[in-house]
Structures are given as C-alpha cells and as structure tokens.
Simulated scan of single mutants.
Amino acid sequence: MYLDITIKARCYNPAKVESILLEHGAQYVGLDVQTDTYYEADYGKLKHRQGNIENVLIHYNRKSGGGTKQTEVLLYLKHPGAETINQICGSQKVLAQVKKLRKIFFIGNVKFHIDYLEELGHFVEIEAIDLDGSLGLDMLNQQCHYYKELLQIEEDDLVTSAYTDLIQHS
C-alpha cells in the first residue's frame, strides 16, 4: 500500500531551502504549474491535479499528528484520461481549486516541494514515500524529521492545514 508522511511549513527563504537540497544531492525535477481541483467525497479527499509535470487523480485520507501528516492513498492514477476523470468526478460537486507553482526535488524516496501560492506565499513540503510498505512508518517519520532539521524548519512555521483551508481563512 502507498503510504507517506508529510511535513508542511511556511518558507521565508525558498532560495536557501533550494540551495540546501541541491548541496545534499537532491535531483531537481522541475517547476510544475499546478491546478488542484477538489471534489466532494464520502471519505477523505478526491483531487484531480493538472500540471505540466504531475497529472494525477488521487483519492486519499490524511491524518495529522505532531507536525506530520500520514496519508493513506486509496486511488492513484497517473495521467488519467478525460473519460476516467468524468466517470469518477463528473457527478461530484467541486469543493475548491488551488493554483500553485511547485518546484519538485527528490532525494531517494523523499520528495520535496517548494510551493508558491499567490494568496499565501511560499511553503516547503517534505514527503517521505513508501510505495510498497517496505520502509514502514518509523523510517518515514525519521526521514521527515531529519530533513526538517536539515532545512532548519522551526516548530512555529509548521502548517497542518490544507492549502484549501488556508485560502478560505486568508
């Protein structure tokens, strides 16, 4: 089962975060211009992400705790066709849309995002990913906390709310 642990924080110096990542061997994937459309779902969240790098349809449930979020992924389709999107989302109410610029980096199984949202500013996300259950929650948590320290993320800068919630309250 696909599982990930995520830390999200406000980012006041995105150039410094990018520099630290590159100094530690991060692979820069590119700049993605993303629009996330959230649909009504009986359980968790249903999201269609459209970007020039990432195009996915994902149904997931996220639990927060101690500055991290654990995500259980129920459906993950890369590059879904219009027919598939219509079948799954066509009758669902659109709840929100989030537009962002996202720089994407990887170090092994850990994905990093440096996001910019016009309404909110810059954020950094650390996403430790276990695609097949071989790493386990303890390892994912250790990785997130290691990179949190490396990137000098302060506790006060941690964000547990989704971008949709932050935008609604801004």
Rank of each mutant, 00 (worst) to 15 (best):
M1I: 10
M1Y: 05
I5S: 01
T6Y: 00
K8R: 14
K8W: 06
C11M: 12
Y12F: 15
P14D: 06
A15V: 02
A15E: 14
A15L: 12
E18M: 06
S19F: 00
S19W: 07
L21S: 02
L22M: 07
L22N: 10
L22G: 07
L22W: 04
E23D: 14
H24C: 05
Q27A: 11
V29E: 10
V29Q: 05
V33L: 11
V33S: 05
V33K: 12
Q34W: 03
D36S: 09
D36M: 09
T37K: 12
Y38L: 12
Y38W: 00
E40Y: 13
A41M: 09
D42S: 03
Y43S: 15
Y43T: 04
Y43I: 11
K45H: 04
K45T: 14
L46M: 15
R49K: 00
R49F: 04
R49V: 11
R49P: 04
R49L: 13
G51P: 06
G51A: 06
G51V: 01
N52L: 07
E54K: 11
I58C: 07
H59Q: 08
H59N: 04
N61A: 14
N61W: 05
K63H: 13
S64N: 15
S64K: 13
G66V: 06
K69D: 03
K69Q: 09
L74H: 12
L75M: 13
L77P: 00
K78F: 00
K78L: 14
K78C: 03
H79M: 02
H79R: 08
G81F: 07
T84S: 05
T84P: 00
T84M: 10
I85H: 05
N86V: 00
Q87N: 04
C89L: 09
C89Q: 01
G90Y: 00
S91T: 13
Q92C: 14
K93P: 04
V94P: 00
L95A: 04
L95Q: 11
L95E: 14
A96S: 15
A96D: 13
K99I: 09
K99H: 08
K99P: 02
L101I: 05
I104E: 09
I104L: 13
F106K: 12
I107P: 06
G108H: 08
K111E: 15
H113W: 05
H113M: 03
H113N: 15
H113V: 06
I114Q: 05
Y116L: 12
L117Q: 07
E119M: 13
E119Q: 15
E119V: 11
L120G: 09
L120D: 12
G121I: 09
V124W: 12
E125W: 04
I126H: 07
A128V: 06
I129E: 13
D130F: 12
L131G: 11
L131Q: 14
L131N: 08
S134V: 05
L135R: 14
M139W: 08
Q143P: 02
H145N: 13
H145E: 15
Y147C: 03
K148Y: 07
E149W: 03
E149C: 01
L150F: 03
L151W: 02
L151P: 01
Q152T: 04
Q152N: 02
I153Y: 02
E155Q: 13
E155K: 13
D156I: 04
D156M: 12
L158P: 02
V159E: 09
S161V: 02
S161Y: 05
Y163Q: 10
L166I: 09
L166R: 11
L166E: 11
H169P: 00
S170W: 10
S170L: 09
